[in-house]
Simulated scan of single mutants.
Amino acid sequence: MSGGIRFDSVTVAYDGNVVLDALDLTVAPGEVLALLGPSGSGKTTALRAVAGFVRPVAGRVFLGDRDVTDLPPYRRGIGMVVQQYALFPHMRVEENVAFGLKARKVAKSGIRGRVAEALEMTGMAAYAPRYPRELSGGQQQRVAIARALAIQPDVLLLDEPLSALDAQLRSGMLAELARLHRELPDVSILYVTHDQVEALTLADRIAVMDKARLRACGTPRELYRTPVNEFTASFVGNANLLPVTVSSGGVSFGGVELKTETAGAAVGARATLCVRPHLVGLGEGPNRLSGTVGEIQWRGATHRLYVDVDGHRVMADVPELRNPPAHGDAVTLHFAPEDAVLLTAGVTHD
């Protein structure tokens, strides 16, 4: 392929401790792929292996058709934005953006035009003469992105680029990153985050990492609607994970028979039933569960109910209620059979 990223069984270890274990993963040309996972999952190590900041002990890293495993970072032609932006405080905005171009010995005649283009693309043209200390956090982030884009990379690496921003700025920058992706359709973007909202919003595909290994990979819709394991279900969106036993007509949960698609699972097998909270209703309906309200949270347009059902906490996100139930009230929940997903791989409950 002419662009993109490919991990070919890439393993990274420090002092014998494996922090990335035999990663096989491809980022297509022009694709945004989010590496999503908790701290220590291996996602940032994978990004650093692409950048050339860590050396795999096994496997190869490819950019397009080039094997870059042994190349130093400056020869990879990659744009990168890190958490704290790493702007040079003594340089003006335009000088920061020009830095990578000067390091690559681009002719002076070409630097000015590329800097202007990158600043215009990120909405920072008017701030070219300012110093980083004169900018807000969101503006500094835009400058860091402009600097990465100025070298016209085929690959852009984003390492938790929004983590230092407050919620409102983060939402706005997500929209800006989505716009940039539309304007740069040939640039492959590897986006590291622990924030599921960022991944669901921006990514074409999400690779879910945990304990140094890739656990699942697919489109946001696939991972949200049909997760393949408990970890993915719980990390990509909120999920009720109910320990069940497969029965002839569906599953059994705490002595209650629930109808759902079992996809050929053996009767008597233990499994986990995944139901998203917004698909759980309050009151009568199919697949009824009776329990006691343990907690209720008002979230503006919705109420989040936490209901104790046979010793398990079940979450239900229901439209705002005029007279919500109180702590200790008995309630009935329900969900449609087609809204549940049976997980049989990696079941760990007793």
Rank of each mutant, 00 (worst) to 15 (best):
Y127K: 15
G16Q: 06
L33M: 15
T44W: 04
G294F: 05
R133Q: 12
L289D: 01
Q168D: 10
M173D: 06
H194A: 07
A34W: 14
D310R: 11
M173T: 12
G77E: 13
L289W: 00
V244K: 12
L36M: 00
N17A: 11
M124T: 01
Y306R: 13
T226S: 12
V10L: 09
L273W: 15
R170T: 02
E320V: 07
L190S: 08
T69H: 02
G255K: 12
P227A: 09
S234Y: 07
D210K: 06
R215P: 00
A51L: 11
A207R: 05
V236L: 02
V57C: 13
A239R: 02
L305Y: 00
G328P: 07
S252G: 13
T332E: 05
Q84F: 13
R48F: 00
D15G: 05
G30I: 02
T292H: 02
S234C: 06
L20N: 02
A144S: 14
Q297R: 10
L279W: 15
P243K: 10
Y131N: 07
M315A: 08
R130S: 12
V18K: 08
A330Q: 12
L101S: 01
A51N: 02
L282Y: 03
V251I: 10
S2F: 11
Y74W: 13
P153T: 10
G311F: 01
A239W: 02
H349A: 09
R55V: 14
E94T: 03
E31Y: 00
A164F: 08
A207Q: 08
A107C: 05
Y85I: 08
A212G: 00
V246Y: 14
L169N: 11
A340C: 09
R66V: 07
R55C: 10
E338A: 07
